[in-house]
Design a protein around this nucleic acid. Sequence first.
DNA 1: TGGATTTACTAAACCGATTTAGTAGACCTC
DNA 2: GAGGTCTACTAAATCGGTTTAGTAAATCCA
Lengths: 341, 341
Amino acid sequence: MPANLKDVAREAGLSPAAVSRHLNGSLDLPQETRARIEEAVQRLGYRPNPHARRLSLGRSDTITLIVPDIANPFFAALAATVERAASARGMIVQLHATSNLESREIAVLELAADHRSDGVVFCTNRRPGAAVAEAIAALPRAVIVDEAVPGASAPQVFADNAQGGYLAGRHLAEWRHRRVAYLGGDPMLMSTRQRAEGLERGLREGSEGAEVGVRILSGRHDVATGRALATALLDSGGDETAIFVGSDEIAIGVIETLRARGVRIPQDMSLISFDGARALHLYDPPITAVRQPARRLGERAVELLLDGDWDDRTLPELVEYLPVELVERASVAAPNTAEPG
Amino acid sequence: MPANLKDVAREAGLSPAAVSRHLNGSLDLPQETRARIEEAVQRLGYRPNPHARRLSLGRSDTITLIVPDIANPFFAALAATVERAASARGMIVQLHATSNLESREIAVLELAADHRSDGVVFCTNRRPGAAVAEAIAALPRAVIVDEAVPGASAPQVFADNAQGGYLAGRHLAEWRHRRVAYLGGDPMLMSTRQRAEGLERGLREGSEGAEVGVRILSGRHDVATGRALATALLDSGGDETAIFVGSDEIAIGVIETLRARGVRIPQDMSLISFDGARALHLYDPPITAVRQPARRLGERAVELLLDGDWDDRTLPELVEYLPVELVERASVAAPNTAEPG
DNA sequence: TGGATTTACTAAACCGATTTAGTAGACCTC
DNA sequence: GAGGTCTACTAAATCGGTTTAGTAAATCCA
């Protein structure tokens, strides 16, 4: 029903080729002819059919965004900037949520390939298997964001997890904490390892030779995991005086559990979160956190996708760490030495 | 480079038509022939080109989701269920953020039409003009969610705003509040009017004949608006003892401002929020809120889009209100009669 | 004035599916 | 053995663009 190129050409008394080439700027026409085309376009309300265009061009002017869960504020913030950056360039974004399922990850990566997506932004919370790395390698343009995909050949953009862990460690050490629990995601995750290492290093450097200890408990990045790990930590009767959590989601579960158990933050247990996508300054108590550059991550991914030199064979080896910052609030205090946690 | 239908046909010793029709189930072939096709598909790793398919079929197996801002937890939650429901049906979702700009709203609605989107889920925070209603009318399948579009011909799915306002009003009345401020979005918005009316009605019904008053201050649904309106309210020296806000975003700005001004919640000022997409139970104090069915809204929209009887001429007149609930926490208390707010 | 160049286009192939209308041959029936 | 029916397909048009290779006519240049 809508007018197509042929209609416009007929209306303007030209061939479809002439109209197409004029509209795409690959043909210089005299003023008078151009006017005829513009007028025909106006009169018929012509809008090119994007599917025909994509079929013909073999590309889709589309950015594919793959995240575990869009309801997670971190990924929502990232998605917001991906969308903004993409639409500013006339690109459309396709959104896929994987629920952290490998099968879904692979399925949507293959879909992106089928669609000749002009760029894929891939995020996962798991440590993906080789099949995911292969599916990514099959894409002409993809960037991996937030969590590493071992063996994948694509540029990667991360938060500076090691630095985040370090800042948390230093901060806790300054408050005289020596035993800290890290409650985070899968221990095989790059982010988990980097944060835990940074944490331990910061703790050590800030403790002036005192003995320090980091206990790692892991699960998934969700509220239920936060509850479960906090419960496990408390039940284990360890001597940790502070908790560093891997995400706001986990933090929520931890806070709920601590509160239910009557463990006061920060008097009985100090807490630092990692994310800062939520309004932690309004929490009770306001939660000290390492703020991840969620928006910047998304923006940078789109930049790489659209402005990167993809003929440069070294691009897929690029790894960037974007700066994080420690936002001090009120969930860290000196350990309560009176009683064991 | 990837194999196409013709390659598969050649490999199987058949015509492309036969292969296509078999793959789409419109042709019954003998077992042996079927096996030949399946094998060729396997061997060549054939995957249909979706753009060719779409061009040919005139549809796209795509749901278009249009929201003001995906970083807003309410829309993020809605998006999550839209994505889940859509992908469960083999549909892809295209995401557009409008930043509440009419020009963007119209542009993306037109894009959706160009793409022969199989369904559009449209959300706005503004009171859109006639041009938006027209752009929606031009779509074969669209549903309007969360906020009304005057004059649009499309099914609409809302939270039960009037009931939400009523519940808040009753609750405040029970705590002896008589003067309440509603800080919300544009007063021309259907949601604003419904909530304010419900609020007043609830307040009146709960106040046993006492005189009640509702003051409405409005702006946009964001944190900055919350700060500005709270400041205006406080500076105006009114006698309101409670604030009912139109969204968690506004609530955040209000809480920040109250805190900065030394106005205690709930001792000096009670507060009820509307949304509940955030972790309000961890706030200081835990914030009583009317919880919107964000996820259900998204789910219902996709249901209507995909299972609705679109031949039924009355469908575009459908209006549904999904139930809300009041979650009582600790931000409401009896008014402090000692001093004026 | 005749060949070379430039201007202003166009014919037709192509992207990769779907689908309508039909056909060749086997079998069945009377 | 003629006509009808059924089986197993296929030829070719179509969706609506883009692009390559080319052409007719006008202009330039010597």
